[in-house]
Amino acid sequence: MNRLFPAAALALLTTAAQAQTPVLNVLTYDSFTSEWGPGPAIETAFEAVCACDLVFSAVGDGAELLARVQLEGAKSEASVVLGLDTNLTAQAAATGLFAPHGQTGGNDLPVPFDDPIFLPYDWGYFAFVYDNTKLATPPTSFEALAASDLKIVIQDPRSSTPGLGLLLWVKAAYGDRAPEIWAALADNILTVTPGWSEAYGMFTAGEADMVLSYTTSPAYHLIAEEDAGKSAAAFDEGHYMQVEVAGKLAAAPQPELADQFLAFMATDAFQSVIPTTNWMYPAHMPEAGLPEGFAQMITPAKALLLSADEAQAARKNALDEWLTALSR
């Protein structure tokens, strides 16, 4: 077999050469591990305490991540999967590929969150972001948005995790009235993009008045670009949360290191990197608090979040309603 696949032999040799330093493989999404994401700083900090080599491997985004876990199955080299959100965790748990994390010690989320398999590492609120130099009085609810002639760009829930988040936001806020809200919003939706990047790119290019993103998105512009021109609109219905979690694989090649990494996730060395690299709220407030600029972000009056099982149960129906309302 190895004559057919010399690369396999090569891979084995390299693994053998590094045997003295154990390798912890963490599977995550692309923007986490990119040069501009939290990955590099977290890698340095963890390697300083673990006597191991932390290797991130990345796929596109949260949804792709789950698909990848299922593709690799029990053969995965990864011990930890980082970057699923709670809209996907029921499906992830059902694969049976994950093991309980066994960590204790809670978290600082604004809603009670306790899952035996998945540990949160950051969170945020979905919100519509707008340019405050062009729009003085943003809408304060989905109904006000639907009544306005503002144009928004959203992401497709069939290909994007924020898109799925919006679907469940409307469902959590309006329940059976969701189809009616979508029908009313139809003429405000300029277009639907496959992922977050395209939508946000269209918004910053001035093509749309608002874009579905996060309440913390303006912090990027404020802190990294010193541009106070972007704001998130506060909606009276409350804002749906995205809770990003990590879990240990049942077949983890490095179970102890995986446990150590999950415990490390709750420490300041990990958490203090999150706000200005992932532009989300840390799941455990660092001692030094949040960076300046985050104080200017809106705080929703109400946090909405369906449990993993509710989200899973609501998804198909909500998607059909969305398709029906927008396909007309």
């Binding site: 792709e64 290909s159 993009t193 496959p194």
Partner: peptide
Amino acid sequence: FAVALTLGGGPRATTIELAIYQALRFDF
């Protein structure tokens, strides 16, 4: 897929490729 969806203005402009994407990524 991306062109059709983004410029098509919404799910009316769903192509087979998007259905493939959905099947592979969300529904596995």
